[in-house]
């Protein structure tokens, strides 16, 4: 288990609750690439990604008490909110059928390759995703970036639901094991 809370996250939450403008600027500078990049990967629309980024940070500023540093690190929490909003956007924009057809027909890995912020860790994560068997990779991409449930993934890939669940679990384990083998500590 990751040790929580991260001390800096407790300080940040306290300062945001006290209304420190500088602290929000600091949080934005640190996490906006992750939030924006994730939103852009999901929506493939710069305007929508900017709107989601704005919503995520304005929400944090308005209700900092909703972030509990004992339950998640701030970066992960913001990414989770960004992802939820991205999923909402994707679901609003497309009918479920068109998502499934489009997602199943396309090869989603290029979206990960597009990312330009190339820290060593990010490169290794992208390589670990690319190294997955194609069937696993598709399942992860459909669930993670297109916001499909595992049942929808099963439908999109024409596989049993149990197989979709297993592929998602197995894919994440494979990525994690490869990263650990490469010396990336996941904490």
């Amino acid at each position: 288990m990751r040790p929580l809370p991260v001390a800096d996250d407790v300080r940040i939450r306290d300062e945001l609750m006290a209304g420190s403008e500088e602290c929000l600027g600091e949080v934005y500078d640190r996490y906006s690439p992750a939030v924006y990049g994730l939103a852009l990967q999901m929506t493939r629309d710069r305007g929508a990604a900017e709107d989601i980024t704005q919503e995520v940070f304005v929400d944090l500023w308005q209700r900092p008490e909703r972030f509990d540093p004992h339950r998640a690190p701030l970066g992960g929490w913001l990414s989770m909110i960004a992802r939820r909003r991205g999923i909402d956007w994707v679901r609003r924009r497309r009918t479920q059928a068109s998502v499934i057809v489009a997602a199943a027909g396309g090869e989603p890995e290029h979206r990960v390759e597009d990312a330009v912020l190339t820290s060593t860790t990010n490169r290794q994560v992208r390589r670990a995703v690319a190294d997955l068997p194609a069937t696993h990779r598709q399942a992860v991409m459909l669930a993670y970036y297109d916001g499909l449930t595992y049942r929808e993934v099963a439908l999109a890939l024409n596989i049993p639901e149990g197989t979709a669940k297993w592929r998602l679990r197995n894919a994440l384990h494979r990525i994690g094991e490869q990263l650990t083998a490469e010396g990336i500590h996941q904490d």
Partner: peptide
């Protein structure tokens, strides 16, 4: 989370 962070891109 790491998969999400790997998509990071400066706005």
């Amino acid at each position: 989370e790491l998969i999400g962070e790997a998509a990071a891109r400066p706005p």
